[in-house]
Amino acid sequence: MKLILQNIFRFIVLVLVQVLILNNIKFLGFINPYLYILFIIILPLNISRSFLLILAFALGLSIDIFSNTVGIHAFATVFVAFMREPLIKLLIPRDDNHEIVVPSMLSFGKSQFIKYAILMVLAHHIVLFFIESFSFSNFISFSTRTLSSAAFTLILLLSIERLKMRR
């Protein structure tokens, strides 16, 4: 029960932080961190995969509605939510898998969690920016935008996780 309330609260806070603060950063003109993906990354592992997809769709669509980019975030978020389980299976040995409920630096171990976060954020940003531009025609601009924003998101995400671990 506590976990559910916590996640509802996290959903709302992340959407608000994303649309009210992070979307206004526009650092250097093109860097825009998308921290809201943190919600998918640290969602408990014991929820059903279908429910995870629906949650991801809802999250993406809420971001979309606020930033007037219908469908883009929804697509990227659903994609990342879908590949979460295979990714975790790949990173974490199968026998440890059942004990972990919530992904975090403590439960995964630091290096595994960082790997997991990097892959998730990168996948999300690549899909997001690709859908946004719908082409690879301007590949250099595409990749700089993607990588710089992903780096920014990762810095925010990992520092938040780090703070949680200390507490």
Partner: peptide, 12 residues
């Protein structure tokens, strides 16, 4: 869901 969001994008 993916097709749905793509439809949203295409018909944005």
């Amino acid at each position: 869901l993916e097709v749905g969001s793509l439809l949203l994008v295409v018909n944005s």
